[in-house]
Design a protein around this nucleic acid. Structure first.
Ligand SMILES: [Zn+2]
Length: 457
DNA sequence: ATTGCCGGGAT
DNA sequence: ATCCCGGCAAT
């Protein structure tokens, strides 16, 4: 499958701090991390999806399955109140469908994550593409009249590849949720972030840990981390964004972001480490790098998944006529990509958005740089063997032991310094050649993520 | 963003 | 020993 670009972002990020700090959330997160580091959770570890009891509201966006859980998790904070009662006007989930009186008629909108500390609820009205602040009593969660208001705005024709079986079994309309999330996200992204307010004293302060948002990492931004303003100065842009939506960002991207929620890490030079959690049903794996996460999803969840039957059924999100895609709506670019011509590379229909890497300050995880090891020890060229009978793995192992074993004297080991990595050959390796969907055809080494044995340089 | 693969964990 | 995969570096 080639639709990797739009991996359904099944993950969520969270942060991990080195100190044992103040907030509960953090604690649990650390637990997660440690759990991971100590004993790797089984691949299909059910760690995910349980964190938060689903508090599905009846009307609003009943966040389905894991998604809901995760979202809730990441916002377990006070901002919206934990209540799921959906009755008190002030207790809303971000993204929850709400109704407000607009221009004399009831309009459907979504609760916006932000601005909830001051008794005002921010509501995003998709139809107008604007945000509006309403007092609690001006917001209701159920339509008073047979809503003729536009149903949830549907994302502009796009699709994300999500195997059917992964869809929430619930009747809830995924599209809708997605749409809602996306919209909400949109409204939160960009410069318009972190509203002033924030009342740390209000309710618990767990979410505090999700303050600061400049989180880095191109490709995603702290969507549900509305709570982030807390510790940061917040460049405080106007709240009346109205037009600030980069509505033309890739939907896929949005979805991604929505699905895995980026962390909002309180940025402290090195006291904070980002972690992402996989939201794939029953996974919940925590990784510290986006790349890793992507790959994790790709290989573990989307990759070989034995499900031969339903090959990545793309989740079709029908376009919504009422929403103006905006000029920026990228045309379905043919993601040509130089795919190995011999192996049918699955082309997915999705739109590939070459999302412009937002101008975030990239903060690479490890600020420390290793002095480039000077001693390059070249890996002995693996003998060109082709024998399939012998376990390739064995060969690999042997070779390696040979490489590593030799008494130190002979090779003048770069003491103390890390041996430099082998220079990357230009030959295409199994992965590239066969593609992850044919992982079973890779050479063992490749499968093990070791140096390729088949296409040796 | 993607690919290659080291280092190290799990079984 | 065998398999697996996170994370990082190179593309
Ligand atoms: Zn290979």
């Amino acid at each position: 499958m080639k639709g990797l670009d739009n991996l359904p972002a099944y993950w969520q990020a969270s942060e991990v701090t080195r100190h044992t700090v103040q907030c509960h959330m953090l604690q649990s997160r650390q637990e997660v991390m440690s759990a991971v580091s100590k004993s790797r959770l089984g691949k299909r570890s059910p760690l995910g999806g349980l964190v938060c009891g689903p508090c599905s509201s009846t009307d609003g966006l009943g966040m389905p399955g894991n998604l809901g859980a995760e979202v809730a998790t990441s916002m377990a904070g006070p901002t919206f109140g934990l209540g799921c009662q959906g009755f008190s006007p002030v207790k809303l989930y971000p993204g929850q469908r709400v109704y407000v009186n607009c221009c004399g008629q009831e309009c459907a909108g979504f609760a916006d994550p932000r601005n909830h500390g001051d008794n005002k609820a921010s509501v995003f009205l998709p139809q107008q593409s604007v945000h509006t602040l309403r007092r609690p009593e001006e917001v209701w969660t159920a339509p008073t009249a047979p809503t003729q208001a536009t149903p949830l705005p549907r994302p502009i024709s796009s699709s994300i590849n999500m195997p059917n079986r992964y869809r929430s079994p619930e009747p809830v309309d995924m599209d809708e949720i997605m749409a809602a999330m996306v919209l909400t996200s949109l409204s939160c992204s960009g410069a318009v972030q972190s509203p002033p307010l924030r009342d740390p004293t209000a309710a618990s302060c767990e979410m505090e840990c999700s303050g600061g948002e400049e989180l880095s990492d191109s490709g995603s931004s702290g969507y549900w981390s509305w709570d982030q303003g807390i510790g940061s100065p917040a460049p405080s842009p106007s709240i009346a964004e109205a037009d600030a939506h980069p509505a033309d960002e890739g939907i896929d991207m949005e979805l991604e972001q929505v699905l895995f929620d980026e962390p909002a890490a309180r940025k402290r030079k090195n006291s904070v480490r980002l972690a992402y959690r996989c939201l794939w049903p029953n996974c919940g794996k925590v990784l510290t790098s986006v790349v890793g996460m992507k790959r994790h999803i790709r290989t573990l969840h989307l990759g070989h998944s034995s499900e031969s039957e339903h090959p990545r059924q793309p989740l079709q999100l029908s376009p919504n006529p009422t929403i103006d895609p905006g000029p920026g709506t990228p045309p379905p670019s043919l993601l040509s990509q130089s795919a190995p011509d011999c192996y049918g590379q699955v082309r997915s229909e999705h739109l590939y958005q070459a999302c412009p890497p937002m101008q975030v300050a990239m903060s690479p995880g490890s600020p420390c740089h290793w002095a480039p090891a000077v001693t390059v020890l070249q890996a002995p060229q693996a003998a060109p063997f082709r024998s399939r009978s012998v376990s390739v793995g064995e060969q690999w192992a042997q070779q390696h032991s040979a490489l590593i074993r030799p008494n130190p004297a002979s090779r003048s080991p770069p003491r103390g310094h890390c041996t430099s990595r082998r220079v990357r050959g230009e030959a295409k390796k199994c992965r590239k050649v066969y593609g992850i969907e044919h992982r079973d055809q890779w050479c063992t080494a490749c499968r093990w993520k070791k140096a390729c044995q088949r296409f040796v340089d």
